[in-house]
Computed example of a mutant assay.
Amino acid sequence: MLKTQCPRCIGDGRLPYEERTFAYSRPAVMNDHFERAHLADIKVRKHDNLIFYEHLKCIEDGIKLSNIDHLRNHVQSVYGV
């Protein structure tokens, strides 16, 4: 995963391959997309303990995330994003 790819979109099997692997021009632009497109949903799911990360490798490894900070830490430490 590149620093300019959205960590949430890349694992969304409902999206076409081109959309999942889309790379933004800069990491800051990707961060803006993440906040606009995904953060509200993550915050709602957080209250129900339903935060999940849909990267195929993480699904295979059984990665469970408990909150948004855990998600951010995971994406940073594992993928450098």
Rank of each mutant, 00 (worst) to 15 (best):
residue 21 T to Q: 10
residue 60 E to P: 09
residue 12 D to C: 03
residue 81 V to G: 05
residue 27 P to N: 13
residue 22 F to S: 07
residue 16 P to S: 06
residue 34 F to N: 03
residue 33 H to R: 04
residue 78 V to E: 00
residue 13 G to K: 09
residue 62 G to F: 08
residue 28 A to D: 07
residue 13 G to C: 15
residue 75 V to Y: 01
residue 67 N to L: 05
residue 16 P to T: 07
residue 47 H to F: 10
residue 19 E to V: 13
residue 7 P to W: 09
residue 23 A to C: 08
residue 73 N to V: 11
residue 78 V to P: 02
residue 76 Q to R: 12
residue 1 M to A: 09
residue 11 G to C: 14
residue 3 K to Q: 14
residue 32 D to C: 08
residue 75 V to M: 08
residue 48 D to I: 04
residue 31 N to Y: 11
residue 35 E to M: 11
residue 68 I to K: 00
residue 1 M to R: 06
residue 30 M to R: 03
residue 11 G to L: 12
residue 74 H to K: 06
residue 17 Y to H: 15
residue 50 L to D: 08
residue 80 G to R: 11
residue 3 K to C: 15
residue 21 T to M: 07
residue 80 G to C: 02
residue 63 I to S: 10
residue 28 A to W: 12
residue 46 K to A: 09
residue 53 Y to L: 02
residue 56 L to N: 05
residue 41 D to Q: 09
residue 80 G to P: 04
residue 53 Y to Q: 00
residue 1 M to S: 12
residue 77 S to I: 01
residue 19 E to A: 10
residue 24 Y to W: 13
residue 11 G to T: 10
residue 10 I to R: 10
residue 64 K to Q: 06
residue 40 A to V: 08
residue 41 D to M: 12
residue 27 P to D: 08
residue 55 H to G: 15
residue 30 M to F: 04
residue 52 F to M: 09
residue 74 H to Q: 03
residue 62 G to H: 07
residue 33 H to E: 08
residue 46 K to H: 07
residue 63 I to T: 03
residue 3 K to L: 12
residue 11 G to M: 15
residue 39 L to V: 07
residue 67 N to H: 03
residue 30 M to E: 03
residue 71 L to N: 01
residue 36 R to W: 11
residue 68 I to V: 12
residue 42 I to C: 11
residue 31 N to A: 08
residue 25 S to P: 09
residue 6 C to E: 05
residue 45 R to V: 04
residue 81 V to D: 06
residue 19 E to H: 14
residue 25 S to Y: 14
residue 34 F to I: 06
residue 13 G to Y: 01
residue 8 R to C: 09
residue 37 A to C: 12
residue 13 G to N: 10
residue 56 L to C: 10
residue 2 L to K: 12
residue 51 I to C: 04
residue 8 R to T: 11
residue 2 L to E: 10
residue 19 E to W: 14
residue 21 T to D: 03
residue 20 R to Y: 00
residue 10 I to D: 00
residue 44 V to K: 11
residue 51 I to M: 07
residue 69 D to K: 14
residue 8 R to H: 10
residue 32 D to S: 13
residue 32 D to H: 09
residue 67 N to T: 06
residue 12 D to Q: 03
residue 18 E to P: 02
residue 28 A to K: 15
residue 73 N to M: 15
residue 29 V to W: 01
residue 33 H to M: 02
residue 36 R to P: 01
